[in-house]
Each structure stands twice: as structure tokens, then as C-alpha cells.
Design a protein around this nucleic acid. Structure first.
Lengths: 148, 148
DNA sequence: GTTGCTGCAAATAATTTGCACTCTC
DNA sequence: GAGAGTGCAAATTATTTGCAGCAAC
């Protein structure tokens, strides 16, 4: 998984005149361990080592990271809002049941983005996603239907 | 724009043992006039001719339509949750400023979906999206920056 | 006639904001 | 030391739910 080093985050924040705080570094570090987490997941993850961080700060920091171009926000029905540090165009394979997300590289996606850029669009971001039932949830569903 | 005839909606609802109500037909009809609307937009649109419909019913009907496979739900940061009647794989070109959404057909997308199907995924849905500033918002932004 | 459907209002969930205090620069 | 950043609690927004009455089949 891609990761944020404290040095990199500090450099980026400073270069924008923003302050480097333990909270901001902690949120960045959370992405090293968590996969497409929700704000709540980051909060619970950081509670252990940084019990002082408030949920509001997590939200504020995430908004800041989005504006700074460090993460991107993915809103979903049912499984909430997730944050992604993979900014390269890629496909999110999302299990609609459990919310597990897997990143898949894809050459077609790159082709599409190149075409849009050539067409003169002012591109701000992109999101490509295929919703599925993951193997685990498929198995669980099968078991449940047998039980009836 | 694709549309829902009363007959088609009635047929689908009946075939699933669901009741055909004026509210459900009205929500379906709203999609004939509105482009990727929010629940609120549908509500305000229907107020004129169907002042009796409650917002809760709009939400319930939309959830029902999603389950029935008539529409799909697209959650966005900033511009809220939109509902789309175009279920074919396509690209949503979304203005991050004003929320205008344009559908674009794309052959690469079809290729991607075929590949996933061949790979044995149990596909539930998909979503492909390029975020941009639309021409109107670009122009407005330019004017504002000149004003400074 | 029986249920499912609806409207309304209240409940819930997710996110944002105001404010006093704290820490980075 | 100044001002940005934070924690907490309250506010806001979007959506869901309980319940009594109404309407589709």
C-alpha cells in the first residue's frame, strides 16, 4: 500500500503555509495501516495511540488533505464515505455487502483519461468503480440461503 | 433522455407483487424531466402537480426503485446524492462546482465490464466518473478572478 | 376486507461549526 | 507573541422510521 512519510507530509504542509501538527501526521499515518477507511475507522484506529484526537479534527484534517490533493473522497450508499490515498486513475472493486475495496490497475482507464484531457476538459478527478459481492460475502450468502 | 412509461413501471411493480400507486408513478415520471436529480429536487418538482407527496415517500420510492433495478444511486461529496436512470455502463462527466452531470458513452468502459464478467466477478453495478469544471463554471470562475 | 403504502413528525446518523484554549512557527 | 489548529459540545443536514389512517388489489 502507498504510504505517507512524516517527512513528506511535513514538507507538503509547510510548502502551503500550513502547520505541521501531531494530529495531521497521525491521520496521514493511519492511511499506512487502513485500506480506504471511513473517518470513523481512522478515529478508532488512532484512539489507541493518540487518545486526545477528536473526531472533528479527523474530519477537518481529511478535508484539508483533500484540498491539498493528498487523498480523495469516495461517497457510497450503505458503506459510508471512504478516503483513498491512491490518486492515480484506477478501478475500485467494491463489495456492496461488506464494503471491502480492492484497487485494480487498468490500461483502458488511462486511455479514457488521456482522451478527456485531449478533448480539453479541465479534469479535477476521476472515479471508476465496479460493485460486486466479494468471495467471502458470496460464501456467507450461500450458507444463509441453505439454512432456510 | 430515457424515460419511464406508466405502463412499464406498473408492469414491473405488479410483476414483483408491489402496488401501483400514484406516488410511485409520479416519482418515475419526474425522471423524464429531471437529469440525475437529488431526492429534494424530485420532491420540489412534484410539489406543483402532486402537493400531497411527502419527502419520506420520495426516499422510500427511490430505495424501492433501486432494489427493483430501475435506478441507481450516486453519492457525491458537496453535490449530494443523485439518482440515475441510465443503468448501462457509461461515464458521468460531473461538474464539481454546480453538479451538472452529462452522460458519455464509451467503448473502453464496455471492454472493462466484459473483462470483469469474464473474470467471474458477480457484478452488481458500476460507476465511472470524470470530475471537471464545466464551461459555465469555468467562465464564472474566470470572471470572479478578474474582478479582484 | 386485508395489507401494503403514505404522510407526518420524531428519531437517527454523519458531518460541520462556534468558541475558548493550546501549540506551532 | 500571533494566529492557526484543536477539543468539545451544540448545530446542521440528509435520511430513516413509527404509527395511524388510506388506498390498491
Amino acid at each position: 500500500m502507498a504510504a505517507f512519510s512524516d517527512e513528506r507530509i511535513a514538507r507538503i504542509l509547510k510548502s502551503r503555509g500550513l502547520k505541521v501538527t501531531p494530529q495531521r501526521l497521525a491521520v496521514a499515518q493511519a492511511f499506512t495501516k487502513l485500506n480506504h477507511p471511513t473517518a470513523e475507522e481512522i478515529f478508532r484506529f488512532l484512539e489507541k495511540e493518540h487518545p486526545y484526537i477528536g473526531l472533528a479534527t479527523i474530519y477537518r484534517t481529511l478535508k484539508l488533505f483533500i484540498k491539498t490533493g493528498l487523498v480523495k473522497e469516495l461517497s457510497f450508499p450503505n458503506i459510508g464515505t471512504r478516503y483513498d490515498i491512491n490518486l492515480e486513475p484506477h478501478i475500485n472493486v467494491v463489495c456492496v455487502k461488506c464494503g471491502a475495496i480492492e484497487d485494480v490497475e487498468n490500461e483502458e482507464i488511462n486511455k479514457i483519461m488521456r482522451r478527456f484531457a485531449n478533448d480539453g476538459y479541465e479534469i479535477v478527478g476521476c472515479r471508476f468503480e465496479v460493485s460486486i459481492y466479494c468471495d467471502d460475502c458470496k460464501a456467507r450468502r450461500l450458507k444463509r440461503s441453505r439454512r432456510r
